[in-house]
Design a protein around this nucleic acid. Structure first.
Length: 421
RNA sequence: GGAGAGGUGGCCGAGCGGCUGAAGGCGCACGCCUGGAAAGCGUGUAUAGGUAACCCCUAUCCAGGGUUCGAAUCCCUGCCUCUCCGCCA
């Protein structure tokens, strides 16, 4: 959520910013409604002040045993005017909020401007993408051969877009989750195990709602949503509260399954476990002082990179172009891991700074040393997505004989297994 | 799911329909006192909106409705917490 005061005072900045995100909320209308709103507030508050004052006088008269009939009658009328004013105010506010909640966060100045991912900028590359001297099978083929990935069984259970891991495949996923949690908690991230099903208001807080409603699973009887990322649960842990400045920065990490309907993505990445309706992910969230957030963004990217580096798989870091940025993000880096079987990079982590956009929506604030209440900045980053990492391991660690070596750092988590065969 | 009890400021805890944005205590901050500290004393200590303005005004005692000139206080609905029973991984 953008600050209405900021919009009022910087309409051109806002218009330019949302244009970079190819958003078309009518800012002039927002400002018009805001003016109307404040006009009505001034009107109604004047009447309320009058009512409060006269009600006090009525009380005094009654105590003194005098008649207050005249005042009561007058206030009855004032009360009607107030009710009418409040009604008009509510209507204007509803209309205003309906627009406000659709205004995206503005891109940071360092974000490349462009319509879609073709304008993304590669900021660095890690590891050598070397050709192996044999044909690397894509993960769905090698996974099937080894009996550790069964897409047919998943389809039988849940239809298309699900995966089922078996034996050492399932073990590998569990190992990765534990490994990643261990790495991040060592860096001071507090491990959180939070609910996977949340209320509508929680989804609004991090910005999934209203815009991404089509992409989420919703429970029929209770109006609850299945989280599309642990970001929702972790970040919203601090909604509707004032944090003491001494608690900042807050670092959290949590594992969760992620549920995504992928509406509109039909026909895209249909093979294997690359684009699925449910996948596991370890997610990191930071809540920090505003002046630190861009530095924190860089260290958060590095934290995610560490996982892939330790696994020794090539990847690159990309800055998303304005048009490719998500609704709530001001700046975002994607980590793209090399898929040796598909011979392309796959997005495996998304690390974003939301500045105070989510904090406003969540009504999460902190009390600073100077006693003032301020909005913190929130960030999150995948650390990392399993449905992309597992394929990358199955492909990059594939041997010519069709076996898969266990990455060194995972061996302690794999109960002595050296390879999958 | 059934039966009760309850939701007031950072915390605890008062609160007859008007004089309560809210007593009192704790905590915290600052000052006095002290060689220094503790104790003691004094002062201060919510958030949001309106506004150039923490001068003032408005709103907020879980949330939403209602009664009333006036609601933390009365009525209705919902949510949450606790206790007991039932069910259950």
């Amino acid at each position: 959520m953008l600050d209405i005061k900021f919009i009022r005072e910087n309409p051109e900045t806002v218009k330019k910013g949302i244009a970079k995100k190819y958003n078309n909320v009518n800012i002039d209308k927002v400002i018009k409604l805001d003016n109307r709103r404040r006009e009505i507030i001034r009107e109604v508050e004047k009447l309320k002040a009058k009512r409060n004052q006269v009600s006090g006088e009525i009380a005094k008269k009654k105590r003194a045993g005098e008649s207050a009939e005249e005042d009561i009658l007058a206030m009855r009328q004032t009360g009607e005017k107030i009710a009418a004013g409040d009604e008009r105010l509510k209507n204007v506010e509803n209309e205003l909020n309906e627009l406000l909640k659709w205004i995206p966060n503005l891109p940071h100045e360092s974000v490349p401007v462009g319509k879609d991912e073709s304008a993304n900028v590669v900021v660095r590359q890690w590891g050598e993408v070397t050709q192996k001297d044999f044909k690397v099978l894509p993960h769905w083929e090698i996974g099937k051969k080894l009996g550790i990935l069964d897409l047919e069984a998943a389809a039988k259970l849940s239809g298309s877009g699900f995966y089922l891991l078996k034996g050492l495949g399932a073990r590998l996923e569990r190992a990765l989750i534990n490994y990643m949690l261990d790495i991040h908690t060592k860096e001071g991230f507090v491990e959180i195990a939070a609910p996977f099903i949340v209320t509508e208001n929680t989804m609004f807080g991090t910005g999934q709602l209203p815009k991404m409603a089509e992409d989420m699973y919703k429970t029929e009887d209770d109006n609850m949503y299945l989280i599309p990322t642990a970001e929702v649960s972790l970040t919203n842990t601090y909604k509707q509260q004032i944090i003491d400045y001494k608690e900042l920065p807050i670092y959290m990490v949590g594992y969760s399954p992620c549920f995504r309907r992928e509406a509109g993505a039909a026909g895209k990445d249909t093979r294997g476990m690359i684009r699925v309706h449910q996948f596991d992910k370890v997610e990191m969230v930071k809540i920090v002082r505003p002046e630190d957030s861009y530095h924190e963004l860089e260290t958060l990217v590095q934290e995610a990179e560490k996982i892939i580096q330790n696994l020794n798989i090539p990847y690159r870091v990309v800055t998303l172009a304005s048009g490719d940025l998500s609704f709530a993000a001001a700046k975002c880096y994607d980590l793209e891991i090399w898929s040796a079987g598909m011979e392309k990079y796959l997005e495996i982590s998304s690390v974003s700074n939301f500045e105070d956009f989510q904090a406003r929506r969540m009504n999460c604030r902190f009390r600073d040393e100077d006693k003032k209440v301020k909005y913190p900045h929130t960030l999150n980053g995948s650390g990392v997505a399993l449905a992309r990492l597992i394929p990358a391991i199955l492909e990059n660690y594939q041997n010519e004989d069709g076996t898969i070596s266990i990455p060194k750092v995972l061996k302690p988590y794999m109960d002595g297994w050296e390879r999958i065969s």
